[in-house]
Amino acid sequence: MHIDAPLTIALPKGRIFDDTLPLLARTGIEPLDDPQTSRKLILETNRPQVKLVLIRASDVPTYVQYGAADLGVVGKDVLMEHGGEGLYEPLDLGIARCRLMVAGIPGAGLGPGRLRIATKFVHSAERHFAAQGKQVEIIKLYGSMELAPLVGLSDLIVDLVESGNTLKANGLVPLEHIADISARLVINKASWKTKHASVTALLEALRGAVAAA
């Protein structure tokens, strides 16, 4: 892999970061500092041209769209909320897999009247119910969605489901499948054009790493 232009890769902390590092390692990119112990937000790597920046998952599209980072890794759930405008998303990294689902107390959501949906994924939830011809009221929450139906804040929730254990522990069941989610490589449009050789070299190397994973 030949990279001669400086490239900044935005990575969200947490699970995606942990799963992305092995893929990057397979392309020959490794952080110099131990990300577990370092408190740095910009990590240098063994490739002097490549830097990693650690940010919140929901900020990754913004960083990449505006070119503060050339590339980024972000869940499809975040991209669906953001709209993906101004970004290229050419590669499914196949990591951090989960499902975006409608969930609730068994039998919930069948009655008449306008449903209240608690979710962090406002746009995705709106689109999903609109496609079914249902007018719903969205209640934006930032976490612990499972609580909302239990305390009467909402009829249903829209949330990411991995194993389903959190739902089960709170007496909820998955009701409808909205989308399969996995992490995507996103690329800034201008970087794609002005650093084309380096960006595509990294893209191809990652594609190889994903295929080999």
Binding site: V64, G67, N188
Partner: peptide
């Protein structure tokens, strides 16, 4: 037209 280091046309 793009300029290096700026994410938009």
């Amino acid at each position: 037209a793009f300029v290096p280091g700026w994410g938009q046309e």
